[in-house]
Nucleic acid binder design. Structure first.
Lengths: 229, 229
DNA sequence: CGCGAGCTTGACGTTGTTCAACTAGAGTGG
DNA sequence: CCACTCTAGTTGAACAACGTCAAGCTCGCG
């Protein structure tokens, strides 16, 4: 279950970019009507093919962004952490989401109506450029993902995922937010092979794994494996 | 080799979106300075990792957009035909291209300085939305591509590519602009397997192939193969 | 205590890549 | 005009990489 409540931005503990860039009065009428919504692990924040009505901003927690393919097999593109847009890619897009987002931990988001953001967008150059740049970075990262998934072997792809998570957590030792199956989806491999590679890396002394706690011991080696080998 | 000449938009035989959306005077000074450039087959129009300085608009010919991966292996994302933006994805992006574009036929493009387009962009809502929507469609198509490349077998991927080209040419019979190797890159498979699948499809009576001329005979069947199997 | 979710490992079969050899046609220079 | 060379296309066979299936293990929870 989830709760909703109207939020007032001036009292919001997590003032977001949209609020920061809002003038005191947005012409064209209509107020912001921000809506804070909480989700628990496994709950879907937005669903592929459903219509895009709000810009969603992640305030607390974490979530996975993935595309649903054939037979509902998932490919996990990246993990969202505060404070990032969730609805960003789709904001510029056709009216429907081309991906799904699901909470990994209990999470809170702020939803702002799309129309409001579009009005803000055309009035505020700085905000416009901010959105566009964030968007551009997403595209660049998707391009890299395509290369990784198609041209690296599974060891390289798992190494990539582990390094990605290390950057995300800003530490060489972190708690995996993902199950083995999800880590496999992030690397576009089967759960079984994901486990196998983790075991290999552990036996080779490259990483330490205790349940979901991962520690990278040989970062340079892992980087070499990620680059191909 | 390529030739350059300054062009005047009012006399341009291919007036583009940028021109159509330009007011008579763009405030903030600076004229448009459009530049028409011709390329021959195999010449590179823009190069992955080089800096983005112009918005490029394809006027005549055709070109392939691809990302260069490990060991210079290419993945062909799509084919550009008039009148489409080439530099579009990168316009919103970081200062460097995340892909390369190479002419498939002798082609002509129009280049407009990025700064000019950015000024235009913030002044003209309609143009802004036009760009954003074109951009959004690109993203949606890349998402579908990821699914295709990762979750379909090679028969399905080649079927996909043939159907894609059929939509592009608006005909069930068309001249392949691509070599077998390039058709393989579009499907992210090896040249040899690409040839093999084409032969299979031919023997099964699904397509007719005479050198580069392809005719789809059993479109429904091809669609089924593309959907998996 | 039993059950289910997450994790782990081995064995096996399929899929797709790579290597190698060969053909056809187009372009080039003696 | 013919030998040459280069590119594009084609096919077969060997091999490696992954996915799938099956079995079992652990831990937390009702």
């Amino acid at each position: 279950m989830r709760f909703k409540k109207d939020a007032s931005c001036s009292s919001c503990p997590f003032p977001c970019d949209i609020y920061k860039n809002s003038p005191s009065v947005v012409s064209g009428s209509g107020a912001m009507h921000p809506l804070h919504v909480s989700y628990r692990r496994h709950q879907t924040i937005c669903k592929q093919d459903s219509s895009v009505t709000h810009v969603i901003y992640l305030l607390k927690g974490s979530a996975k962004l993935y595309i649903e393919g054939i037979n509902h097999r998932h490919i996990l593109l990246y993990i969202l952490t505060p404070e990032r847009y969730i609805g960003l890619l789709s904001f510029f897009e056709t009216p429907r989401y081309s991906y799904s987002v699901t909470a990994l931990e209990d999470s809170t988001v702020c939803m702002v109506e799309l129309d409001y953001v579009k009005r803000l967008y055309v009035q505020n150059h700085a905000f416009l450029m901010q959105l566009n740049q964030a968007f551009g970075r997403s595209v660049a990262s998707i391009m890299r993902k395509i290369i990784t998934l198609n041209q690296k072997n599974i060891r390289g792809r798992v190494a990539d995922s582990l390094l990605y998570l290390s950057r995300l957590h800003r530490s060489d030792s972190y708690h995996l937010l993902l199950t083995r199956k999800e880590l496999g989806e992030l690397s576009a491999i089967s759960e079984e092979n994901c486990v196998r590679i983790l075991s290999e890396f552990r036996k080779e002394g490259i990483i330490k794994v205790d349940k979901r706690q991962v520690t990278i011991l040989e970062k340079d080696l892992l980087r070499k494996i990620s680059e191909f080998g």
